[in-house]
């Protein structure tokens, strides 16, 4: 009756809404948690203390060097054809503008192909990308490479339509990368509305002039920590079932959705198992990653530190795509392991979350999966996820306690059973 007991406790029993309530206190107290910030330090201290108070085992911090970039004062104004205040959010790792700002004519393009075709028009201009949202995975390259591609053709700055599937004039930030040998130009995201408006103006042949001022600063890498807690296995304590989410977030909103929800259902999995007095045969280890938003920085260092033990990692699980209404798990592993996952997911029939999809996804677990460790990621209703992602809208208001209960039940049943089965998943 263990699966039923976990579901009952998480969804109907004393623990219902606990992950939501814990997350609300955490996010309301700490706020956003950008890599290198004092807020992130406070978040890690908070969690270290909370996990100890919860009675979990081997609570400890593992040091990591993470990027330290800070947003400064940001301001953008359309000057021609009319005065219009443009909502912007500088992109992570962007350089600042000169103190006096940049005033330049705009070149609007809808794709990198169009930019390359019109390269001769770009010199000295601010390139505005108005790429359509296809999917996050496909469209996000405009955010990560937009500044580099614009700089290659002589632009002085780039403004990139937010990677968002819906907008109420909200800019959405994110990390971007420069390339060695290519000039570093300031880059920021703008709202879908402003990108489309400038595109319409441009199509009509209207000259657009924008003034941009950004005060970003990049500091030397700073020390942060992956936060770890365990329930030590009773029979094979050296073997690990890893559940995870990331504790860092962007510096806007509260990071409640990305990835507070994933971090707190991972904590909830260990709490539920402890509350039920269960101890699986293998060690159930929770890792709250740091520096995920800068490209899985904490997770990569964790992998380098622990990879010699890779044969003892049974499965790596990460929830980093929301904790809305769950439908199942995405799984990476061989056919035999997938069949086992399907059997385990059948235990979640009482809450109708039984699907096993192809290919787990998670920046922080990819290092392990690439090297043969089975992996799983939570699948939930993503329909509104990119409305809020990396924006001021990522707050507790988008979270739903009942949906988090269901996510916690899935996360706990799956991780517990894999940790308690007599044999590791085949690989």
């Amino acid at each position: 009756d263990i699966a039923k007991a976990i579901i009952d406790l998480a969804v109907h029993g004393k623990a219902q809404n606990r992950s939501y309530e814990r997350l609300a206190v955490f996010t309301d107290t700490i706020g956003p948690r950008l890599s290198g910030s004092k807020n992130l330090d406070a978040a890690i201290k908070y969690m270290f203390s909370a996990l100890q108070k919860d009675g979990l085992e081997n609570v400890h911090l593992e040091p990591v060097k993470v990027p330290h970039w800070e947003r400064g004062e940001e301001f953008a104004m359309m000057l021609e054809p009319r005065n219009h205040s443009i909502a912007i959010l500088g992109l992570g790792n962007s350089v600042a503008t000169p103190p006096e700002g940049i005033r330049a004519e705009v070149l609007v393009v809808a794709s990198f192909d169009e930019l390359h075709r019109r390269a001769h028009e770009a010199k000295g201009k601010i390139v505005v990308y108005n790429q359509p949202f296809v999917s996050y995975g496909e469209t996000v390259r405009y955010r990560s490479l937009g500044a580099v591609e614009a700089a290659k053709v002589g632009a002085v700055a780039s403004l990139i339509r937010s990677i968002a599937s819906f907008s109420i004039d909200s800019p959405h930030t994110g990390w971007q990368n420069y390339q060695s040998g290519v000039p570093q130009i300031p880059t920021a995201c703008i709202s879908v509305e402003d990108a489309e408006m400038m595109s319409r103006m441009s199509c009509r042949g209207t000259k657009i002039v924008v003034y941009l001022k950004m005060g970003a600063k990049t500091y030397p890498d700073s020390t942060s920590f992956n936060t770890v807690a365990e329930i030590v296995g009773s029979k094979y304590p050296e073997q690990i079932v890893l559940v995870s989410g990331h504790l860092d977030s962007w510096d806007v909103g509260q990071g409640a959705m990305d990835d507070g929800g994933g971090a707190f259902i991972s904590w909830e999995a260990l709490s539920l198992i402890k509350d039920l007095g269960l101890r699986p045969k293998r060690t159930l280890r929770m890792v709250l990653w740091t520096g995920e938003e800068q490209g899985g920085v904490g997770a990569e260092q964790y992998y380098q530190l622990h990879k010699e033990n890779i044969s003892n990692f049974d499965i790596v699980m990460e929830s980093d795509e929301g904790t809305f209404k769950p439908s199942g798990l995405a799984f990476t592993g061989n056919a035999k392991a997938r069949d086992i996952m399907k059997e385990i997911m059948a235990l979640l029939l009482p809450i109708n979350v039984t699907e096993v999809y192809d290919t787990a996804d998670g920046t922080d677990i990819n290092f392990w999966m690439r090297n043969g460790v089975p992996g799983a990621s939570l699948r939930d209703d993503l329909s509104k996820y990119f409305w809020f992602h990396h924006s001021q809208g990522d707050t507790m208001t988008v979270q739903d306690p009942n949906q988090m209960n269901l996510c916690a039940a899935v996360w706990t049943v799956v991780s517990y059973i894999i940790a308690d089965m007599e044999e590791m998943l085949p690989r």
């Binding site: 009756d1 699966a3 073997q239 086992i340 089965m421 085949p426 690989r427």
Partner: peptide, 24 residues
């Protein structure tokens, strides 16, 4: 260790199914 060094997986799938069913 529950996973043998050569990666063989000694249990049949039917055994594993029954084991998992025990968690209902």
């Amino acid at each position: 260790k529950s996973l043998s060094k050569n990666g063989n997986y000694p249990k049949t799938f039917e055994d594993i199914k029954n084991e998992i069913a025990g968690y209902y």
